[in-house]
Amino acid sequence: MNSSGHQSSLTMYLLVYVAILVISALQILIAYQNIDAYRIFIRMLLLAIVQAGLAVTFFMHMRSEKRTLALFLLPAAVFVLAMMNMFWYDSFRLLDMRPFAH
C-alpha cells in the first residue's frame, strides 16, 4: 500500500499548483485574441493537455507508481478518445449540407 517510498515535496506541489493556475490564465488570454476559432481551439487543447498531464503526474502521483500502471491505463483512455476523432468528418459535413436540409 505504501508504494511511494519517496514523497513529493510540498514545494513541488506548490510549483505544479502555480503552473496549473498560470496555464488557466494563459488560456483566457488566448481566448481574447483575435484569431480564428480553430487556432484558439488547438492552443486551448494543447494547454489543457499540459495541465492534465501535470495533474496526473504530480497530483495523482502517477510519477511514483509502477510504470506498468501508467502503461496499462493511459494508452487505453488516449486511444479511445483519439478514435472518437472520426466524428468530426460528419460534423463538418453536416454544416456543408445544411442548405439542403431546409
Binding site: F79, V80, M83, M86, Y89, D90, R93
Partner: peptide, 17 residues
C-alpha cells in the same frame, strides 16, 4: 474500437469515413 462505422455505411455518414 476502430470499426464502429461499419454499422453506419448507409446512415449518410461521410463516404471517406
Amino acid at each position: 474500437y476502430m470499426v464502429w462505422g461499419h454499422h453506419m455505411f448507409i446512415s449518410g455518414m461521410n463516404p471517406f469515413s
